[in-house]
Each structure stands twice: as C-alpha cells, then as structure tokens.
Design a protein around this nucleic acid. Sequence first.
RNA 1: GCCCGCCUGGCGGAAUGGCAGACGCAGCGGACUUAAAAUCCGCAGCCCACAAGGCGUGGGGGUUCGAGUCCCCCGGCGGGCACCA
Length: 888
Amino acid sequence: MTDLPPDLPARSDAAAYDPQSAEPRWQRAWAERGCFTVADVPETDRPKYYVLEMFPYPSGKIHMGHVRNYTLGDVVARYKRARGHVVLHPMGWDAFGLPAENAARERGIHPARWTRDNIAAMRAELQRMGLSIDWRREFATCDPAYYGQQQKLFLDMLRAGLAERRESWVNWDPVDQTVLANEQVIDGRGWRSGAPVEKRSLSQWFLSITRYAPELLAALDRLERWPERVRLMQAKWIGRSEGARLRFRLVTEMEGIAEVEVYTTRPDTLFGMSFLAIAPEHPLAAAVAAGDPAAASFIAECRRMGTSEAVIETAEKRGYDTGLRVRHPFQREAVFPVWIANFVLMEYGTGAIFGCPAHDQRDLEFARAYGLAVRPVVLPPGEAAASFTVGTRAYDGPGRVIQSGFLDGLDTAAAKARAIDELRRLGVGEGMVNWRLRDWGVSRQRYWGCPIPVIHCPSCGVVPVPDADLPVRLPDDVTFDRPGNPLDHHPTWKHVRCPRCAAPAERETDTFDTFVDSSWYFARFCSPHAAEPVAAAAAGHWLPVDQYIGGIEHAILHLLYARFFTRAMAATGHLAVEEPFAGLFTQGMVTHESYRSADGRWLYPEEVERLADGSARERASGGAVTVGRVEAMSKSRRNTVDPGAIIARYGADTARWFILSDNPPERDMEWTEAGVAGAWRFTQRVFRLVDAIAGTAASAPGGTRPEGPGSEASGPQVPDAAAQALRRLTHRTIVAVTEALEGFAFNVAVARLHEFANALADAERRADEPGLPEARRDGVALLARLIAPMMPHLAEEMHARLGGGGALVAELPWPEADPALVAAQTVTIAVQVMGRLRATLALPPGQPEAEVIAAAEQEPNVARMLAGQPIRRRIYVPDRVVNFVIGG
RNA sequence: GCCCGCCUGGCGGAAUGGCAGACGCAGCGGACUUAAAAUCCGCAGCCCACAAGGCGUGGGGGUUCGAGUCCCCCGGCGGGCACCA
C-alpha cells in the first residue's frame, strides 16, 4: 500500500484548490478582457516596458528550461504591468533549422508540416502556463510574411555594401554534400555521415560585421544592465589587438610573389626572429606546392587534420621548410627560412608570422622541434643580460630590450612604438589594429531556411530579386531522398529569367543561417503585421527591449549578431536605435539527478522510486538503481522531467512557484520531486487562508470582539497589538517583495511571502484578538496581489473569493506600502564586547546614544565582561550595534 | 595555458562591513486518527549534561572596534576561450 506512488493530495480533500479547473478559467478571463494585448503604438503617457524571452525552437515539446525562462519573463512582465507600465510581452517561433529536415529524411514528414504541428503543440503548452503574452503578435520565422521581410532587409544591406559574396574555406562533408560548422566536425569526420571532412573553398555570402567591430566593442561599456561576464566574452570574441603589419622581402621571388606580409603584436622582438612561418592555406604555400610534391603532401596532411578542438589540442607543432628565404627589415644582411607551419591560421591576421622563439611559446616549441635559433631580446626585470637564457618556457612579459640594435635599452612598450616608426620610415610596414572577429558567413546549403533572394545571371552576374517579386518562397514539393540541398535538386524552382536581361538564369539555392532569423525578430514583434520589416513608429516606441531573458549559451553569437543587425538595420533606415537589448538576464540551467538500472540503462525519474534510506529502486521491477550526478537535463541521460506532466498534476502556478523558489535564477537549479511537492503544499496552504476568511465573514459579519485578555506579550499593553503587528508585517512585506522583484531575487521574494503566509495562518488561530480578523483579511487580500506575478491564477482565485469588486488582479496596480507602518517600532541592538556578541537590546529606534550605551552596560553578561576593565572605546552604530573595546 | 565565476548546516540558499544560517527541502519529537495520508504544533550548525562559554561561512594571512562581505596568498569546483601571432 505504501509503495503506491503518492496520489494527488487534493483528491482527499474536497475543499482544496483545484488548479486544473481554476487555471484555464482565469486564462480565459485574461484573454476575454484583453489584459495583455497592447497596440503597436499605444496612445498613453504611461511608460513602456518591453519584456522578451528568447523565442523557442519548435522541437515539439517544451522543456523545463523553457518553463524557467518564460516564468522569469512573466514575473517581470506582470510586475512591470502592475507598476503602471504598458508592457509588450510577445512570443514567436525560431522555426527554421536542421531538425525539420532530419525529420523529413528519417520519417518522411514535410518540414513545414512537422514544424506547424510542433508549434501548435508547444503553443498549447505555453498557454497552459498562464503567461501574460500578447498572442496576437505571434509569428514563426518560417512564415513567408516574416522571411520575405528578412529578404528585403538583406537586399537593402546588399545595396548598402554590408553584404558580399566571397570565397571562403569551409568544412565540406562529401557524403552529405553539405557544409558543416566546426562543432559538427568530430575527429575530422562529419557528425552524421562519418565521412572524412574536407576543407573546401566555396563562394558564400558574408555580412560585414567586422565593419562594426570597433563600435560593437566600444558600446559594450554602455550596456550597464548586461552581465559583466557576457560583455567580457563578447569583448574577447571581438578581440582587438594592437601591433604592426610588415612585409618581408623574399630573397628570390616565387611565382611572382616577392614578399610576405606578417601581422605581429610584438614588433619590439623583431631582432629575436629566427624564422618566418605561413599557414598551409597561404597563397605562397600553394605556389611552393606547385613545384614541390613534399610540400604539397604536407599541406594536404594539414588540411586533413580538420578544425576540431581535440585534434588541435593534441597536435604537435609541425612544419615544412620551403627552402625560401626572407630578408630582415632592419638587418639587410640577415636572412631567415620560410616554413609552412600547422599552427599558423590563415584566418587570423595575414596568415603569416615571424617566429621569435625566445618570447613566444608556440614559436619556441616549433624552434626546439626543428633546431632553429632562440635569441633572447627582452630581459625580464631583475635578470642580467649575461646570464639570461630561455629553456622550455618563452618569456612573453615586459622588460628591457637587448641585442636589438637601435631598440637597445628601451622598455618593451617604447620599443614597439620605435620599431613601428622605423618600419614606416623604411616603407615596409606600419602600426595596425587587428580584430579577431571575422565576417559572418550566412550561406547554408539547406532547404528549411530563408532563401537568399538573388539570381545568378551568366551575363549580369549577381542580380537582386526585385522587391515586387518578394518573398522568394520555398517550394513545397521537395524531396529528401538523396544527399545535398533539395532546393538545388528541384526540377524547376531555381530556373528563372534574369530580372535585368531576361536571359535564362539561376536562383541562389543557399538559404540563410538561422541566426539571421533570430537577429531581428525582437524588432518585428513591435509591428508583426507591417508591410515593411518594421513600422518606424512602433519600433521607435518599443525598442530597445528593456529586459531580455535567456540562456548563457547565446552569450556570444546570437547576441552579437543581433547587435550587429540592429546597426545594419539602422544604416539601411529600418531602425533608429543603437542597441537591441538594454537589459539582459542570463538564467541558469535546470538540472536533475540521473538514474541507472543495474544493467546500465538510463531511467527516467518517473521510473524510479526513492526510498526513505536514500537509496532508489526501479518502480516496475523493484531492481536496484544507482543515483548518478545532478546534471543538466538531457534526453540521452533521461534525467528529464516533462513540464506537461508536472502541470497536469500540480498546475502551472505550483510549477512556476517551485522554479522561482529554489535558488537565484542566474544559477543552475535542481528540479526535485520534493521541491514541487513543497510548492504544491504552499499553494494549498495559501488557498486555505482565503477559505478560512470566507467562513469567518459568513458566520460573524463585522467580527465579534470578545473581551478576552489581550496578548500576553511584554511591553506596553495595547489592546490590538497583534493586529498592529500584522499590519506592520503586511506593509514590510510589500517593501521586501518589491525590492526582491526589482533585483531579480525571486527566491527572496518567495521567502518573504512564506513568512507572511505563516503569520497570516498564525493570526487565524487567534481570531479573538481585537482587530486581528480585519488585519488578517486585509493581509490575505494583499498576499493575493503580491503573489500574482509568480502565481497569477491562484491570485485571481483568491481575489475573486474575497470579493474582488469586478477587477482582475492582472488589472490592479501594485500595492503601495504605508511608510508609517513600515518604520520599525522596535529595533534589536547587538551589544558586543571586543567585537563579540554578549547581549541584545530591544529598544524603540532613535534612542539617544548615551542611553543606549548605559542600557548596554547594565546587561548582566556585558557587565561581567566589563568588570574591572578600563573601557578604551565605545562604538555606537545607531539602532544597530554597541561595541565596547576594553583592556590596556 | 589564459580569462571569468563560485566555495555558508544533511541539501537549496539568506545576510547595505554591524545578532551568520532568514525562508524552504529533507530530518526528529508531539497533536489529531483505529491506523495511515493530509493538516497542525514544536525542535534543530558543531562542542559541552545544563548554564556560562568555546568553535564555526574552503585553508592561511591582512585591514578594521567589528569581516561570509574588503585586500593578498593557496586550494577545490564550475564555466568560457584557445596554436589569435
């Protein structure tokens, strides 16, 4: 019997609150009253507030991460609304992407159908959560109405010179016939096909994000409501560095190449050079390879190495001596070998470096491997030139320059400047700022994405699709029975006439990276049905987003792309703001214990039963279960909890409450059965507070006042002391919850509301004290309103039962605290001797210092400690602490 | 390797430089019940039989009348980035 899973407590108590009937009822009430709908341009002088959570990919089911994300956003939205803001809180779908194509390939479902079904299912789940969303604004990025406007944006960017087509190296999967992102290449093989990945040069579309690199970096300082670490990650990603660009002249030309350009941040170490190294993809390497099979095979080997982290990490430094020599810019007579090296990146700087082994660790390892010279030219502070040597560790810190001709004696900073001056004087180089950030390649060889709206004409070249022909729609009749891009295989779709010369031409068959779709959706939400990408008046009113909430995993790419897009849209006249997100909050993950059966199968939490002794066993078989680590919920470990099942069992409010109460929202939270159960108990407990009042009011209208003795509490005897104390707590709770919500300290707000509910329940048992029933009734009414951002349905139910007066809580302003009631009536002053607590004093606030100190000295414990000791100092912090410093 | 963050009872956590551990979870005791569930009341950092006291916020040092909080060093855990020239 006791082995049965615990049933819903509600079933055993007829009077209990039933969220399954109440929650949908209030959701309908909000919808009917249009509580959460706002105009594109509201006619009001109330301040605007735009709350946005990162929109979901429609995978088919919401997960706990969504529940957390949207609960956090909804608390903010409901709170801000109550504080008098007109709140924009929309929802949409990041609906393009590979999983839909995979479903098509594996199960024969059309991507559009699969996506639409998933959206319908997830919309229902989100609506069941009771989110205060303006659903009239909903759209999916796979709507032609959305992606058509995106095509318009792209064409404007193309015209503005912000988009261009160029060759670039990509990871090519020869079996799937598609480009792979770096993270899709595992040990040099395609993640799906397992085929060895090749580096190929393809013609791709790029957006010129690098043009905004300085601005994207500088503006980070002004994003004060962004987490510091996100700004830091972006700054590092953008990667500004200062150095010099210089050209090394080849002793003998090679296929018309006479010099090699190098970027360095250490021009001060130029005299420590011992070789020059170029990337395997460098044009000079190709020129060498043309006449040198050994070089060609070395380059091919590097290419096979792939770009995956594991390979790079374990790869030793390897190189190939081309036999070519370059001259040193400062020492005409000195020549150095040119190597092709596997650790030089074509994508960074100029694809070539000068090697200074004494002061760069990689160069040192390379030099040791191939017996190249190691010449120290920077002397660390405190070292003597005669004795300083470099062993296995390069010295890359600052110091004094030695063995460097005209740079001798300068410190490294001065030497950098001096070296750059000299390079410029000689006409072989100059100072240069370099950026790590690369332009954004947006071409994907996929079907389920936004078509890139251009036409390739044999005679006119790249021709934009005319505005009148937008949107370029995806064809529905595609097949997924062979590898490669279905758009490319389609019998007719790509064959069109050139808009310029009417000759037969071909559509671009690549589609956009889905990061493009999510780079401007926040702007589209302001005017989701506009005939242009964004309506100026609406965007002008709502943007920037005041509070954006999402996962840290988007700290770099999505947020940086959106920041870039905002600027590019401003440059093309679509937007007038600089930054899309004024405030950013990054939530932690939802985690859960993981379970394994004796034979090593992963088990879902609902298949496992925890026993009182802390062990666990399988429900079905009774078999032993190993409880594993608490980690991020993932399908592969089966440590997931289905929000739909939780809501069906406990209701949305309980799920919301638990998710908010567990810990601060920026940290990872652990989902536990005991935790939700506790939240469920609280939900019921709060409801019973109302129930008790309804009963009291009916049986004793106006409240009887028996003449019983007042509180036996010490202090001045006030007849209604208990009622007054409850009223003071009520108003202090308003202040505390308000502060907690403002600071995203939702777990603290929950704690304060727990305390308040405890006090109200306590008051229930003392109904005969004067004024207490009234104070309790007022308190419960306020509890409903304070709880509303977190548990909106329960709040409405309570409010209505207390005689809500026709208004919904969702329509009420946030409660105001009465300052007179908030002010403390007594304060507890800590009395310390030598900084250690010896007593406390309960006094009215604001007592004169002398009296407080005198009272403190009277305390027996204090008096004993002070006896026979000279008092050196008496520290007094008003209403807080007294500290006696004693002894000689 | 570099950068960032974190470390407080059995657990999640709270605490403008001023009573450490609020609140919750788990636990223990009691009431109610034939019994259980639910509910309600109470206990609860460690040492000490009680009191008094002592020890306690990863470890060590420092600043201060007073440090979980500020500074320095060390350790552990987590995250991000990475042949970036």
